[in-house]
């Protein structure tokens, strides 16, 4: 299975919500880059979500994610997205649910000699569509938020390292990524890294600012509309993007 590298960051930085718009672009390479970016942003959240939302899938969650994106690449699902009707994340989650449902139904048939299905499709459909309490949306959102921070932190590290500020990242990682009960004081951290407490303060400050910019950039790329971008930025960071 080919392992794609991350798409170049310059692919869709210029305009807002370009990724989702580019999925329907007439220009094939643009469409392909957009799809790659969707994979980069959502492959892991989809797998994590399937694992939690569809326990019957068990260890096949990665396979479900893989087959989902393969199907999406073949033109299923994503081309039907209409930003006027739903936010992209919700649409994607519903597509994943339907895909997982089909996967389970297919698995059920296979286990029974490819004939009758003993897993009720109705029951699966109800499970897929019903999210009265927003649990499914929340599960998917949490998985997506974790992945978003994850890739943003990697970008942060790359950016700081490329600009010769590796130590800034070290301070950030030692303080902000430390478990709450193991988080050092500024003074302890300064002593450990042999810098001044003021440097710890200033570097943390500038690194967090950079991380915020990166996250907003990622949100901008992934959002299907200005409203979506604004909502996500406010909900995640309390800022206006």
């Amino acid at each position: 299975m080919p392992q794609p590298s991350s798409p170049p960051r310059a692919a869709f930085p210029a305009t807002r919500h370009s990724l989702v718009a580019a999925l329907g672009d007439a220009h094939e390479p643009t469409r392909a880059r957009a799809f790659d970016a969707v994979v980069r942003l959502y492959w892991h959240p989809v797998a994590a979500y399937v694992r939690l939302r569809w326990p019957a899938v068990g260890d096949d969650a990665d396979d479900v994610a893989q087959s989902f994106f393969t199907a999406a690449l073949d033109g299923m699902y994503l081309a039907r997205f209409d930003p006027a009707r739903a936010r992209f994340r919700t649409f994607l989650r519903l597509c994943v649910d339907r895909h997982a449902m089909n996967y389970l139904a297919h698995e059920g048939r296979q286990k029974r000699g490819g004939h009758d299905t003993h897993i009720s499709l109705d029951a699966l459909e109800i499970a897929a569509e019903s999210d009265v309490h927003g649990t499914a949306d929340r599960l998917f959102r949490d998985a997506w938020v974790q992945h978003l921070f994850s890739i943003a932190i990697v970008r942060l590290r790359e950016t700081l390292t490329a600009s010769g500020r590796q130590q800034h990242y070290d301070v950030f990682a030692a303080y902000d990524l430390a478990p709450g009960d193991a988080r050092p004081t500024y003074h302890a951290l300064a002593e450990e890294l042999r810098i001044s407490p003021t440097q710890v303060t200033n570097w943390l400050h500038s690194t967090r600012r950079l991380l915020r910019e990166i996250i907003v950039d990622e949100l901008r790329e992934a959002a299907a509309s200005d409203a979506e971008l604004r909502d996500d930025a406010r909900a995640l960071l309390g800022v206006d993007a």
Binding site: M1, P2, Q3, P4, S5, S6, A32, R33, F35, D36, V39, R40, W43, H44, A47, D62, A65, Q66, F68, F69, T70, A72, L73
Partner: peptide
């Protein structure tokens, strides 16, 4: 070729 929907790096 790289656009296969595979698990990203």
């Amino acid at each position: 070729a790289h656009c296969s929907g595979s698990m990203p790096d």
